[in-house]
Design a protein around this nucleic acid. Structure first.
Length: 292
DNA sequence: TCCCAGGACTACT
DNA sequence: AGTAGTCCTGGG
């Protein structure tokens, strides 16, 4: 993707496949917030950033060329041609509609540890509370950072979480997931599971490895594979995706496992992209939870 | 008051 | 192998 350095940050000029609202509201991330003026602000990889639309394109405000090259380019998956992906998916008429609706979606490459904990928290939970809980964890236990006089907090490290009690975690609103979080941190810190090595495994093997963490089942594992490891053949099936798949394709009540199997056969190496377009489509058109 | 939510775990057949 | 019951929390 073409970009240019400006006084304010980095400007993405040809940004047809980059729509901040689609990217940040399609269910893959929890630390980006819509502001009054329509821009988004978030923290990732220990840096804060503002993403703003303008006449000329997408402005990544608050970053220079170095951070752009080393962090944001990969984070926003900017080297991938989403036009090509959308074209292939649009051969299916349901997806043609979903892609038209969520035309600016991109799948982020987020930090693996942060994604692991975030989606453990997502189990049987609502998005506003997931966001609040994660914000609590960061505010209480994340490193305090400062940029241009603004204070923000990084996601807490595995070491920090491992040093806490289940009760400390619970105070942030993690509920019954608290023990999963402390246990997960412990397994990462003591080397029982090589978290960052999982990325190098083939998808199915990586999925099995992730499910060795307590609180990580098939759906959460697929979210981690897709949103932090670029395993695009992963297809997370939550209640929304179940609804949309049954409605448009299967025409009957189907188990989560069978839905995933159906999707990976139908969409193959693009399953993860298909999931995002479908999820965003069904949620925004039939039942988005606006309570923040 | 009761109900349920972007699932996973446990305890059963 | 497949499936109910249960789980923190808080907004409707």
């Amino acid at each position: 993707m073409d970009y240019e350095k400006t006084r304010e940050g980095i400007l993405l000029r040809d940004a047809g496949d980059f729509e901040p609202e689609h990217i940040f509201e399609c269910g893959q991330c929890f630390r980006w917030y819509l502001r009054e003026d329509g821009s988004y602000k978030g923290v990732a990889k220990g840096k804060s950033l503002e993403v703003r639309k303008s006449k000329e394109g997408i402005l990544l405000k608050g970053t220079g060329e170095n951070d752009f090259e080393s962090i944001w380019k990969e984070y926003f998956d900017l080297d991938r041609d989403y036009g090509k992906i959308k074209k292939r998916l649009s051969e299916d008429e349901v997806l043609e509609e979903a892609v038209k609706f969520g035309y600016g979606i991109r799948i982020l490459k987020q930090d693996i540890w942060e994604t692991l904990i975030s989606f453990i928290i997502s189990a049987n939970n609502r998005i506003p509370r997931i966001k609040r809980t994660i914000a609590n964890l960061c505010g209480c236990f994340g490193e305090r950072l400062e940029l241009d006089g603004e204070i923000y907090f990084d996601f807490p490290t595995p070491e920090r979480i491992a040093s806490l009690s289940e009760g400390d975690i619970r105070l942030c609103g993690c509920g019954f997931r608290s023990k999963y979080i402390t246990d997960t941190a412990r397994k990462v810190v003591n080397g029982e599971i090589d978290l960052y090595g999982i990325e190098n495994l083939e998808t199915e093997e990586a999925r099995q490895k992730l499910m060795q963490f307590q609180g990580v089942g098939p759906k959460v594992a697929d979210c981690i594979l897709l949103f932090s490891m670029q395993k695009f053949d992963a297809f997370p099936v939550d209640v929304w995706v179940k609804r949309v798949m049954e409605h448009f394709y299967l025409k009957q009540d189907t188990s989560l496992r069978d839905i995933q199997k159906y999707a990976s056969e139908k969409f193959g190496d693009l399953a993860g992209f298909a999931q995002q377009y479908l999820f965003y489509y069904i949620r925004e058109t039939t039942g988005r939870d606006f309570r923040e």
